Amino acid sequence: MLTEKNILDIQELQKLCENAEDFSLKLNWEMLKTRESSIDDYLYYEGEHLIGFLALYGFGESYELCGMVHPDYRQRGIFTDLFNKAYKSLQVRECEKLLINAPSKSQSAKGFIRSINAEYSFSEYQMEWKSMNVEVDHSEILLRRASTNDKRTIIDLDVKCFNVSEKDAHSFQRVLNNEEGHRYYMIEYKSETVGKINVHTDDKTSYIYGFAVFPEFQGKGIGRNALAQIVLNEAQKEQKIFLEVATKNENALGLYHSIGFQTYQTQDYYLHKPL
């Protein structure tokens, strides 16, 4: 479990690294702040100063990895040392896949990727909503807060829409349930539950994710209407609104653009194998 000092040191190191290369690291702070053990966090200190940090984020048998090293201390094998420790811990767990996350602009990250057995997997656009007029229809498409009775539907949506295993989908739901500021909404069309959308709020920022509509109900404007309702609700509270979308998902990308989202950064993911 990260201490209060660890959290502050990681935040300070993140700011320093981001300013040095003009990018944003995806450190999944909502997960870092709710850790129940220290098995997934690797810190490198010199005296009182945090020089390097690496985090693992587990979802069932799949893991994501993100980290950083102080710009003045690179090329000294620090990140390699942290990576090797994290990788060793995964070898004794049930881990089928490890994805390494790196901002597209980070040259230092790309250098490390080239030095290990990893191959490009996919990229995500990080998008922010910019003010625009959005119309919604409340007559047939409604949002309601999710209940425990929706668990099975949520799992089915993750499996069918995001191509994840059922075990990983169950694990992901357990992680989300431990987060503060998390809200699940179910999408209803003509009184039938057809999708879901998640919102995580942190101060004046709202993150939309886990947005899915069953394939048989896609292409009917249901998703666009539901997303518009969420955006307007968050905008009324003067929240900044963000989401992410895979760069290859042209349908979703077009939908987000039509509502007023604009891309501000790209995150790349690399598959490390074998485990």
Score class of each variant (00 low, 15 high):
residue 59 F to K: 08
residue 63 Y to L: 07
residue 63 Y to D: 00
residue 63 Y to T: 00
residue 65 L to C: 15
residue 67 G to C: 06
residue 69 V to M: 07
residue 71 P to Q: 02
residue 72 D to N: 14
residue 73 Y to P: 03
residue 75 Q to L: 15
residue 75 Q to P: 08
residue 79 F to H: 08
residue 80 T to K: 15
residue 82 L to V: 06
residue 88 K to S: 08
residue 91 Q to G: 07
residue 91 Q to A: 05
residue 91 Q to V: 01
residue 92 V to M: 12
residue 92 V to G: 06
residue 94 E to H: 14
residue 98 L to C: 04
residue 99 L to C: 01
residue 99 L to R: 04
residue 100 I to F: 10
residue 103 P to Y: 01
residue 106 S to N: 02
residue 107 Q to C: 06
residue 108 S to A: 15
residue 111 G to V: 03
residue 112 F to T: 09
residue 113 I to Y: 10
residue 113 I to K: 15
residue 114 R to L: 12
residue 116 I to W: 07
residue 116 I to N: 05
residue 117 N to T: 09
residue 119 E to H: 13
residue 122 F to R: 02
residue 123 S to D: 07
residue 123 S to Y: 03
residue 127 M to R: 14
residue 129 W to K: 09
residue 131 S to T: 14
residue 131 S to Y: 14
residue 134 V to T: 12
residue 137 D to W: 06
residue 140 E to I: 08
residue 141 I to S: 02
residue 142 L to F: 05
residue 143 L to M: 13
residue 145 R to H: 13
residue 145 R to D: 09
residue 145 R to K: 15
residue 148 T to P: 06
residue 149 N to M: 14
residue 149 N to I: 14
residue 151 K to S: 07
residue 151 K to V: 08
residue 152 R to Y: 11
residue 153 T to E: 08
residue 153 T to V: 11
residue 155 I to C: 03
residue 155 I to M: 07
residue 157 L to W: 06
residue 158 D to L: 04
residue 160 K to Y: 00
residue 160 K to A: 01
residue 161 C to R: 00
residue 161 C to Q: 02
residue 163 N to W: 03
residue 165 S to H: 01
residue 167 K to V: 09
residue 169 A to I: 01
residue 169 A to H: 06
residue 173 Q to G: 04
residue 173 Q to L: 14
residue 175 V to Q: 11
residue 177 N to R: 13
residue 178 N to I: 07
residue 179 E to V: 11
residue 179 E to Q: 13
